[in-house]
Design a protein around this nucleic acid. Structure first.
Lengths: 124, 124
DNA sequence: GAAATTAGTTTCCAAAAGGAAACTAATGGT
DNA sequence: ACCATTAGTTTCCTTTTGGAAACTAATTTC
């Protein structure tokens, strides 16, 4: 008889795994955290502001990632009827609920660097 | 004169961004969270156990991801001199420090699903 | 002697991700 | 007339990621 999974083979684990997949799907890609972090600090920013703030990103990626975030109600996009057009991006209240995750990830990464420096003199 | 970044243009932000990049680099890929989550719950598991527990993963990916995690001291690999060879994987104490991140991500994902279901009033 | 089990590695391939540069379209400035 | 700016989109290309299947190698079981 074939062996089956035991640990992950229950509703609680399946739910948690799906939840992790959902969250990470929404936060996937090279730039989501940078965009969210910048918007959390900056309140209202225009497209070109974000392009300047986020080092290395290009227009295609910025545009695409902002669309993703907007679709998930994490970022709000407002178009003003000026000439030329003005577009403002801001984090939503719902988007702000990601702050604890971002905090945890940032702090873990800072600890990781500190541990690397203590254990050896490896510069990453 | 060209405009420059203001928000992200300071040492604290740069450090935080690097930290996030580090953490997410270590946790990158389709399977890291699943492997870590399973090992956190299961203590000691063999290669074939993990292959059975983690639905959909193949030998190549499991092997490669375990190597990554071992390199970062998040997982410990122990080979036993049996015939055929036995290999045990377990989470390290350091690996357990990722639990808060995994918890936050799982809980956010669960909330996200709940919000989607009662999305009659999506307050953004 | 064939098949199964252990823990992987290797090869080949398809899909996804991401970047650079060109382009749109309206308008304001020199 | 020509360039700059706004906020993107489109195209083309390279890199990265991930999966399926075959393979290794030693040993035990049928």
């Amino acid at each position: 008889m074939k062996k089956k999974a035991v640990l992950n083979n229950n509703a609680v684990c399946q739910t948690r795994m799906t939840a992790i997949k959902d969250t990470m799907g929404i936060l996937s890609g090279k730039w989501k955290f940078h965009i969210l972090g910048t918007l959390i600090r900056g309140e209202k920013l225009r497209f070109m502001d974000l392009l300047r703030e986020i080092d290395g990103i290009g227009t295609k990626m910025l545009s695409k990632e902002l669309q993703d975030l907007e679709m998930n109600h994490l970022v709000k996009r407002t178009v003003f009827n000026t000439k030329p057009v003005t577009v403002e991006y801001e984090i939503t209240e719902y988007g702000k609920t990601l702050s604890p995750i971002i905090e945890e990830i940032a702090n873990w990464g800072i600890d990781y660097r500190n541990k690397l420096h203590k254990k050896s003199e490896v510069t990453v």
